[in-house]
Amino acid sequence: MSIITFIGAGQMASALSFPATENGHEVRLVGTPLDRDIIDSAELTGFHPTLKRQLPHEGMTYYQIDDVELALDGTNAVLCGVSSFGVDWFAEQILPLIPDTVPLLSVTKGMIDQEDGTMITYPDYFASKLPAGKKLSINAIGGPCTSYELADKDHSTVAFCGIDMEILKRFKKIFATDYYHISLSRDVVGVECAVALKNAYALGVSLAIGLALGPNGDGKEHYNSQAALFGQSIKEMKHLLKLVNGGEENIIYGAGDLYVTIFGGRTRKIGTLLGRGFTFEEAMAELEGVTLESIVIATRTAHWVRRLAERNMVKLADFPLLMHVDAIINHGVPVAIPWSTFETEKY
Rank of each mutant, 00 (worst) to 15 (best):
S2C: 01
F6R: 00
F18W: 07
P19S: 08
E22M: 11
H25Q: 13
T32F: 00
L34E: 11
R36T: 15
A42H: 05
L44Q: 08
H48A: 00
L51R: 07
R53K: 15
G59N: 05
M60H: 05
M60R: 02
M60A: 06
Y62A: 02
D66I: 03
V68R: 10
L72W: 05
T75I: 07
T75P: 06
V78A: 08
L79P: 01
L79A: 05
C80L: 12
I98W: 06
I98Y: 02
V102R: 04
K109D: 02
Q114A: 11
E115L: 14
G117W: 07
T118M: 02
Y122M: 00
P131E: 01
A132G: 11
K135T: 14
K135Q: 15
G143T: 00
Y148K: 14
E149C: 08
C161P: 08
G162D: 07
E166Q: 15
K169C: 00
K173M: 00
H181L: 00
L184Q: 13
S185A: 12
S185R: 10
E192D: 14
V195W: 02
S206T: 05
L207P: 00
G210K: 06
D218I: 13
E221M: 15
E221P: 07
H222V: 12
F230G: 07
S233P: 03
L240Y: 02
K242D: 15
G246V: 14
G256I: 09
T261L: 08
I262L: 09
G264T: 01
G265D: 06
R266L: 04
K269C: 02
T272Y: 00
G275A: 06
G277L: 10
T279H: 04
M284Q: 14
E286G: 03
E288S: 14
V290K: 10
S294Q: 03
I295M: 01
I295S: 03
A298E: 08
T299H: 13
R306A: 09
R306H: 13
M313K: 14
M313T: 09
P320H: 13
L321E: 06
L322R: 01
L322W: 04
H324K: 04
P334C: 02
V335R: 05
A336K: 12
S340N: 12
T341H: 06
E343V: 14
E343A: 15
Y347S: 03
Y347G: 07
